[in-house]
């Protein structure tokens, strides 16, 4: 199993919306690979999960309260959206991914593909 970081690999460019890279936990269990992404302010309806070739992308649009005029005040929570992407390996079952969103956490389970079994006929003679 490999969890390789690829810095600077920009494949998604959406300059119109400020995007943050959410902190993620990823671990491998018996049932597959689990992903937990922190996306505060995002509800289930605002999460978009896509698979393009071998890239799994998780996007979330945050719905955060904001003032009509925020000229005065301390501000450091600026994310209005989140995006994170992962490479899927050949053994990941992309068609069976399960996802949920609660308390600002997006959870994914990427199941392992069941190995294809083929019976080989043995000829005689």
């Amino acid at each position: 199993m490999n969890c390789e970081m690829k810095n600077g690999c920009a494949t998604v460019a959406e300059p119109t919306v400020a995007k943050a890279t959410p902190a993620c936990d990823v671990w491998e269990g018996e049932d597959g690979v689990h992903v937990v992404a922190e996306m505060p302010g995002v509800d289930a309806a605002a999460v978009e999960i896509t698979i393009e070739r071998d890239v799994l992308s998780i996007r979330g649009k945050a719905c955060l309260p904001r003032a009509s005029s925020r000229a005065e005040g301390e501000m450091d929570a600026v994310a209005t959206g989140y995006v994170r992407a992962f490479h899927l390996t050949d053994t990941a079952d992309a068609g069976a991914i399960q996802a949920s969103c609660k308390d600002g956490l997006v959870r994914l389970l990427v199941p392992r593909k069941q190995p294809a079994q083929r019976k080989i006929a043995v000829s005689t003679g």
Binding site: M1, C3, E4, K6, C9, T11, V33, H87
Partner: peptide, 8 residues
């Protein structure tokens, strides 16, 4: 098996 993550 698994996934590798990208920084976008």
């Amino acid at each position: 098996y698994g996934i590798r993550h990208l920084h976008l």
